[in-house]
């Protein structure tokens, strides 16, 4: 413990209630279904780890970005909240989640869960007087939904159209159902296809985008995001 004489009048203990930074909520919806087994899931784990490392090294995103992780697939539960909204403000405390592959691809449920999570979070922000940026939601999948997804997709698109959500769909591997993913994604932001297993590059880009957002001003119309060449396929 720090002695009083070191810091008599200063600030000693981190307290989330004295974080005045506007927040940028980001929900990761990650496909951990059976088809992700082996190398893909290992790369995904590595990528998510990279993401949190990058976020906590940046003075702005460390206090602004709050990430929640939902895995769909893996085990009988179908959709599980692997990590509730977490900031990296307390550097030593964040444990990036690790995933195991297995089960089906309940993408629709995952989308609903993500939207619900964001709605609650925004309500909390408003109640506490915390400013926030347009939330982000990232959907990564290597297959096709095995449940009802159209209604959820409609909700995603409504939110995106009203500038209440930045939605990003990323297809992985040769068997991803890109036409369905395209239908889920808002028209102005069609899905991207990951080059090979470049999860780490993708998550590095995501953390840099978050850093750009958390440097911007709340209410700013557009934020220049980094180049996606490092991870996205050039679609023919």
């Amino acid at each position: 413990m720090q002695s009083q004489s070191d810091n008599e009048y200063g600030i000693q203990v981190y307290n989330a209630s004295i974080n005045p930074a506007p927040r940028c909520p980001c929900v990761l919806l990650l496909d951990t279904s059976h088809s992700m087994s082996g190398e893909p899931i290992a790369e995904l784990n590595e990528g998510v780890k990279t993401y949190f490392e990058e976020i906590r090294q940046d003075d702005f995103s460390r206090f602004s970005v709050e990430t929640a992780v939902i895995a769909f697939g893996a085990s009988d539960q179908g959709v599980s909240l692997v990590m509730p909204f977490t900031s990296c403000a307390r550097v030593e405390e964040v444990q990036p989640p690790r995933f195991k592959a297995g089960g089906l691809t309940p993408m629709g449920q995952a989308l609903e869960r993500g939207l619900d999570l964001l709605k609650k979070r925004k309500r909390e922000y408003r109640a506490k007087g915390i400013a926030y940026y347009q939330p982000w939601m990232v959907l990564m999948t290597d297959g096709a939904p095995t449940d009802q997804w159209r209604e959820a997709a409609q909700n995603v698109q409504n939110e995106a159209r009203n500038r209440k959500l930045v939605f990003l769909g990323v297809g992985v591997g040769p068997y991803v159902d890109m036409p369905t993913l395209t239908e889920i994604c808002p028209d102005n932001r069609p899905p991207k296809r990951l080059q090979g297993l470049r999860f780490c590059q993708f998550f590095e880009w995501l953390s840099q985008s978050m850093a750009a957002v958390s440097r911007s001003s709340v209410g700013e119309q557009s934020v220049r995001l980094p180049n996606i060449d490092g991870w996205a396929c050039v679609e023919a």
Binding site: N7, I11, V13, Y14, P20, A21, D59
Partner: peptide, 10 residues
């Protein structure tokens, strides 16, 4: 910016 974030001041 450091002054605008209590944790960074600490």
């Amino acid at each position: 910016q450091t002054l605008c974030q209590p944790q960074l001041i600490a």
